[in-house]
Design a protein around this nucleic acid. Structure first.
Length: 1036
RNA sequence: GCCCGAGUGGUGGAAUUGGUAGACACGAAGGACUUAAAAUCCUUUGGCCAUUGCGGCCGUGCCGGUUCGAGUCCGGCCUCGGGUACCA
């Protein structure tokens, strides 16, 4: 009997649960450490082996930190609102809460089997009213706040009102949608409703008409990060642009802090880059242009104000409000037509047609404020209304898009920047624009001779002086659309009075999700909540019918874990002061532009209003890579192609004495094989098809004077020697019937093993379930059972085996390559699964799942076990004093494992365990003094095994509560070092020398060796490089 | 197009600061034990040449450079993966 993992794992999982081993509470005597996994959405499909990868890594780290004396917060919960459960509800009428509950229990069951050290008393679910009360509460705080640019933080809206009362709008610098000018007196004279309308421009949660991503298939609006390439990220449905009244969060107020905060975070550069690009800060200036014969000004945003003398035309977004008024009468029709055309295009069409240049001249001219040049005003949809001012000054010489536009519509191009030492060429002959932000200005009046950087500053200064422009910063980041026309989400704590939104009082929270009769919009197109009866306040005011998006609940869940059962507050001040922030956040990189930005924003806001002690929520983040599937393939033979292949193998390279051409074409006719020398055509086809073609082919051959052989596929496969004889006879000039009609063969599916000759030419790969393939060998009987319609299939084997091909691709049901953790746990145990997932490769890299390799880890676990137990399962440890060699192995391993965990190199730590076990087994070491620390060392990785061994060694308490072993340098020092001796950088032999031997002495020793003489020979020594305790290199 | 990241045996990967390339495992081949199987153990396993012993040559996507020494640093290119896309 071997190590009985099934019984052991069950025993200790129960022990941990019954003794609440992982329960954690505030302990001021210990340093805290917060390890968090990204919130999972419990999907109906359950976990596959890719999901727990990050959970295992974070669990190892959490366990390691516990052993290191930290008070570790390691919670888990569920992002329970989500589209799949609601889509299922729409189809079946099942309440999403029921589906979600079911999925959660399945998830929990799977998670429990892996042996995680979560404190489940802290579980949080976004759909739990006790939790979403605080999501709603935060929304109210956002509504009641504005962003003060002077203090650079969120402040209560009351302070804004006070400022307006005292100094009007000029007294305020705020993040806002609009900033109308009014005096204190104006403000006081406004009606309540007008005041509220004005305040809406400043609130951090606000209601506005905006262009939104409308997804008709899902019946809802989506945020920018929920849309990719014109399709919804979930489901892949087309998205349209539409104007709707929606709640938004003014995340743009935090653009700069979100950007700057990145510098302080211990995140991967790639995630930081993705966030930087998403926020998209660009520094430039805005300049106002007058329009000829028109009162309005057109303000443009540019990052290159220095190139203003090269502006040869101007482009407005088709939606720009001035388009209507500046367009001349002659151009009116053309402009309207263009606007109409761009409006009717879907977002996806617009994106795929990016390379197509389109635009329309308005007939109007703008005046360059610096030289009064008349520049034509165009509209084109390459200028977006949502960015900058929706208008650009086009400088075709120095912007590639403007360049392409100018070339297309034959507009002038003026060079204003030269690169160093450039000889000027007429722009007519340019092939591309010069976009680089370096060089010296020319053709630019007072900017001539200045560098680009200086010219930018000079021009902005000049514009400011004349009051026509200023420096300006723009962000790509948009305010987050916060309304969803869906049922399964948090209700807004909002009601409407006279069309104006008002917040519920805190004591009315949570506003619970009402029951509805169907999870669909109403006939009038209102969201599902409009179906709820009595969806109004006690006073009878209607409640908001939209719900909040998925990211609402996941933006602050990590804070709730600090104090999850608090009824009075989101979390207590004490809990937040103790746990502070997430020290290690483990999760996928796919949340870079969604959750990870929203959560940072949410946290910064709570920091501003004094709720949290940290402005950034996640100190360090590790993004685990994806685990890809390893699909198995069988090869279905195409009989016709196979017959052709075999014949060609015989005919090619004058195999039958004469040259043959393959795929011979004559006019519209095509034949498989043709020999000009023998004037012979050979065609291989199915009998049925030959019967039809025999006549026309024969006619053709007669006309051309060719001879012909029509070979049924069946003949080629069943009796190819006979066919070859016929061909030989024909070549020899003998008479052979052109076509012998025989009954067609019943078509049986044929599968060829991977390495059958020519397989690639005559077969097509088909995915096969990985559970019936072992070490790439197909279980043929299981295959026939799996696909009964292939039960009569014939298999072409190699060495009596069917060898499958394989491919690395996404793990998915349709590819039959999903590996489920439960099956593996049943077969190998959770510890093996944990170890193997780590052993697979670097945590952050994507890698294919390969079940074959798990055997090695399984062997290791049992080998480790056998260090403690003999073949009769008797404990065989001894209390003997360990020797030097054993101590060295132990301490080397402790050091390696600790260093590897610290740098999240879990795969190399597993190797270190293997090496250590191999070495100790070699020495037949069974000493407690060595083995006991090893049990502690391995406990974060294989907690069940470690707990069992720990108790077997006579301990009563849990291995979880112990201390991590400490390595001792003294056991590791060596007296000698084995130098690799190289000649010209090539290693030739080893040389063992005392560790403290001086360099001079080493040189003398090494040069005196007979071995060295061989390599030096007559070339002579040029130089000797000796790096103590590293290498010796001799240059000859 | 732009911005990241990665390319090492049949496979997953190791080499932490420029210092013995291929640790550890899988797979494969051969052997021991066994009536047999499983399990376990032993040997070989980057390629080529030599194999009578010593050995020798090549080799980390490609081309070039720096260096006594490059998988690692620099320049150029190729391929794959991720992000983003008229963002002015």
């Amino acid at each position: 009997m071997d190590y009985n993992f099934a019984a052991v794992e069950k025993k200790w999982q129960e022990y941990w649960r019954n003794n609440t081993i992982y329960k954690v509470s505030i302990d001021q005597n210990k340093p805290k450490y917060y390890v968090l996994d990204m919130f999972p959405y419990p999907s109906g499909a359950g976990l596959h082996v890719g999901h727990p990868l990050g959970y295992i890594a974070s669990d190892i780290f959490a366990r390691f930190k516990r052993l290191k004396g930290f008070n570790v917060l390691h919670p888990m919960g569920y992002d329970a609102y989500g589209l799949p459960a609601e889509q299922y509800a729409i189809q079946t009428g099942t309440h999403p809460a029921i589906t979600t509950e079911k999925n959660i229990s399945r998830y929990r069951e799977q998670l429990d089997k892996i042996g995680f050290s979560y404190d489940w008393d802290r579980e949080v679910r976004t759909s739990d009213p006790d939790y979403y009360k605080w999501t709603q509460w935060t929304f109210i705080q956002l509504f009641n706040s504005w962003y003060n640019r002077k203090t650079d933080k969120a402040e209560p809206i009351t302070s804004l009102v006070k400022a307006f009362e005292q100094g009007g709008s000029n007294a305020v610098e705020a993040a806002c949608s609009e900033h109308p000018a009014f005096t204190a007196e104006n403000w006081k004279a406004m009606s309540e409703v007008v005041q509220q309308q004005n305040l809406m421009h400043y609130r951090l949660a606000y209601l506005a008409d905006t262009i939104v991503n409308w997804c008709p298939a899902l019946g809802t609006v989506l945020a920018n990060d929920e849309v990719s390439e014109g399709l919804s990220v979930r489901g892949g449905h087309p998205v349209e642009r539409k104007s709707m009244r929606q709640w938004l969060l003014r995340i743009t107020a935090y653009s700069d802090r979100l950007l700057k905060g990145l510098e302080t975070l211990d995140w991967s550069d790639s995630i930081k880059d993705i966030q930087r690009n998403w926020i998209g800060k660009s520094v430039g200036g805005s300049i106002a242009f007058e329009v000829e014969n028109h009162a309005g000004l057109i303000e443009v945003f540019t990052t290159r104000p220095d190139t203003i003398f090269g502006a040869t035309f101007m482009v407005l977004a088709p939606e720009h409000e001035l388009v209507k008024t500046i367009t001349t009468a002659e151009q009116q029709a053309a402009v309207s037509a263009y606007i109409q055309r761009t409006k009717n295009r879907s977002e996806r069409e617009r994106m795929t047609e990016v390379k197509k240049i389109s635009g329309q001249f308005t007939g109007a001219y703008a005046l360059n404020p610096f030289n009064n040049a008349r520049i034509p005003i165009w509209i084109a949809d390459y200028v977006l209304m949502g960015y900058g001012t929706g208008a650009i000054m086009a400088v075709p010489a120095h912007d590639s898009r403007d360049f392409a536009f100018a070339r297309h519509f034959e507009l002038p191009i003026i060079q204003v920047v030269t690169s160093q030492g450039e000889t000027l060429i007429d722009t007519k002959n340019w092939e591309e624009s010069y976009d680089a932000k370096e060089g010296v200005l020319v053709n630019s009046d007072f900017l001539n001779g200045k560098t680009v950087q200086d010219a930018i500053l000079s021009l902005i200064a000049a514009a400011e002086q004349r009051g026509i422009g200023s420096s300006r910063v723009n962000y790509r980041l948009r305010d987050a659309i916060f309304s969803r026309q869906r049922y399964w989400g948090e209700p807004f704590p909002v009601y409407y009075k006279d069309g104006m939104p008002y917040m519920l009082q805190e004591d009315q929270l949570p506003l619970e999700l009402p029951a509805v009769d169907a999870y669909l919009p109403t006939e009038n197109g209102e969201p599902p909540l409009a179906r709820a009866t009595d969806w109004q306040t006690k006073e009878g005011f209607p409640l908001e019918t939209n719900t909040m998006p998925g990211f609402a609940g996941s933006s602050g869940y990590y804070l709730r874990y600090m104090d999850p059962n608090n009824k009075e507050a989101y979390f207590s001040k004490e809990a937040n002061a103790y746990w502070q922030e997430v020290d290690l956040y483990m999760g996928g990189a796919e949340h870079a532009t969604g959750h990870l930005i929203y959560a940072r924003f949410w946290n910064m806001f709570l920091f501003d209003i004094g709720l949290t002690v940290k402005d950034e929520p996640f100190r360090k983040m590790i993004n685990q890579g994806m685990i890809q599937g390893r699909s198995s393939l069988v090869y279905r033979v195409n009989p016709e192609k196979m017959a052709e292949y075999h014949l060609w193998e015989k005919l090619k390279n004058k195999g039958m004495g004469v040259e043959f051409i393959r795929d011979f074409k004559d006019g519209h006719r095509k034949f498989d094989f043709f020999s000009p020398e023998a004037k012979l055509i050979i065609e291989v086809r199915r009998v049925k098809s030959l019967e039809k073609l025999a006549h026309p082919y024969t006619e053709y051959a007669q006309k051309k004077g060719y001879r012909m052989l029509l070979i049924p596929v069946r003949d080629m496969l069943l009796e190819k020697e006979v066919v070859f004889e016929k061909v030989a006879a024909l070549i020899a000039g003998k008479k052979v019937p052109e076509f012998e009609d025989k009954p067609a063969l019943k078509i049986v599916p044929v599968f060829a093993s991977k390495n059958i000759d020519g397989r690639a030419f005559f077969s097509d790969p088909i995915h096969v379930d990985i559970s019936i393939v072992q070490n790439d060998i197909l279980d043929i009987e299981a295959f026939k059972k799996w696909q009964p319609h292939w039960s009569d299939a014939v298999f072409l084997l190699e060495d009596d085996k069917y060898v499958c091909g394989w491919e690395v691709e996404k793990m998915s049901k349709s590819k039959y390559n999903v590996q489920n953790p439960d099956e593996l746990i049943e077969r190998y145990g959770a510890d093996t699964l944990r170890l193997y997932e780590m052993f697979l490769g670097p945590l952050e890299q994507s890698k294919p799942w390969d079940t074959q390799g798990i055997e090695g880890v399984f062997r290791f676990i049992r080998k480790f076990w056998r260090l403690f137990f003999d073949d009769n399962q008797q404990l065989k440890v001894s209390d003997d004093e360990p020797n030097k060699a054993e101590l060295k192995i132990l301490h080397k391993t402790i050091r390696k494992v600790e260093e590897d965990i610290e740098r999240f190199s879990f795969n190399t730590a597993v190797s270190a365990f293997m090496i250590c076990t191999n070495e100790l087994a070699e020495l037949k070491c069974n000493k407690t003094a060595i083995l006991e620390p090893l049990v502690l060392l391995i406990s974060p990785y294989a907690p069940h095994l470690a707990e069992e061994l720990w108790h077997a060694l006579g301990h009563q308490d849990s291995v979880v509560k112990q201390d991590f072993p400490i390595w001792d340098e003294t056991f590791l020092v060596e007296n000698t070092f084995t130098y690799p001796v190289s000649f010209n950088g090539k290693k030739r032999f080893d040389l063992e020398l005392p560790i403290d031997m001086p360099v001079k002495e080493i040189e003398k020793q090494v040069l005196g060796l007979e071995e060295s003489a061989k390599w030096i020979s007559d070339k002579g020594v040029k130089k000797v490089i000796i790096v103590p305790n590293r290498i010796i290199n001799i240059v000859v």
